[in-house]
């Protein structure tokens, strides 16, 4: 007996997950398509993944230098400090912006073919993980060149930081997807907001420099800030999170759940709205 599919106005979460798993191949195809279209060939792709964060590093470094600001990195090598922040921020920004671009670019497929809509979030996020890993290797290389201290015992924080950032990226990208489907004008505004994140998140300052205690504890909840701190902790003894890392994990998880919840609500009318 072939499998039976049930269609109604409601779909249980388990059914939703089942369909995603059964169509995992399409996720691969969507990632592959994006890579091919965007980079044409893998060499240019890797080059871009290397140069994008380096350009930010140059620009922000220059800005800080011209502003005459003493580096706010504590004991740490300022370039390593800055670059760690940049790659984390860049990962989140690229994930959200690629999701928005993907919804626009795939509008025709969305209304003409069925595939799990959540792939429109997962495909861009997984694709930018590749870029993140490349820039992470670049970060390690810079640290080696500059003879920075690398704490091998802290390397275990890399996969945990990655899980934290993945949950955050998927949650935020889902919310961004919902926002642009509900109101298409937001697709210009959200990328702009993401760039202001460069100042909101501790890319070039330390959490310790935030004087306001309420604001400071707000940052402790922030999984992006925690991701930056995790990456930085590989290169020094800095441990700016007095409270356990569990808190940002918890907020990232909540963000992920809220993102999925909102996406599932939007998903049922997605093809009609696009």
């Amino acid at each position: 007996m072939p499998p039976l599919r049930h269609i109604s106005s409601k779909q249980s979460f388990i059914e939703w997950v089942k369909i995603i798993l059964s169509r995992h191949e399409t996720l691969g195809v969507l990632i592959w398509k994006d890579l091919k279209v965007q980079y044409g060939n893998w060499f240019l792709g890797i080059l871009w993944a290397i140069f994008q964060p380096l350009i930010y590093l140059g620009a922000i470094g220059l800005m800080l230098h011209l502003g005459g600001r003493k580096h706010a990195s504590g004991e740490m090598d300022p370039i390593i400090f800055l670059f760690s922040g940049i790659i984390v921020w860049n990962f989140i920004t690229n994930a959200v912006n690629s999701t928005i671009a993907g919804i626009q670019g795939n509008a025709n497929i969305i209304s003409k073919a069925f595939f799990p809509r959540f792939f429109l979030v997962l495909a861009p996020v997984f694709r930018v993980v590749l870029d993140f890993l490349i820039s992470f290797i670049l970060l390690i290389s810079i640290a080696v060149i500059r003879h920075s201290e690398i704490s091998a015992s802290a390397l275990w924080k890399v996969p945990t930081a990655l899980i934290l950032l993945l949950m955050t990226a998927i949650g935020l990208s889902s919310l961004a997807a919902v926002a642009v489907v509900v109101n298409r004008h937001l697709r210009h505004i959200i990328p702009m907001l993401m760039y202001t994140g460069l100042f909101i998140f501790p890319v070039f300052y330390m959490l310790e420099h935030i004087g306001n205690p309420i604001l400071h504890s707000g940052y402790l909840l922030n999984p992006i800030a925690a991701g930056m701190t995790s990456v930085r902790s590989i290169f020094g003894t800095m441990d700016s999170l007095p409270i356990s890392l569990a808190i940002p994990y918890f907020s990232a998880f909540v963000l992920l759940l809220v993102g999925i919840w909102a996406f599932r609500r939007m998903e049922r009318t997605m093809a009609d709205r696009i």
Partner: peptide
């Protein structure tokens, strides 16, 4: 591709 507003369907 889209969901019905009411009713249900089965596809085997």
């Amino acid at each position: 591709i889209t969901f019905p507003t009411e009713g249900e369907a089965f596809v085997r």
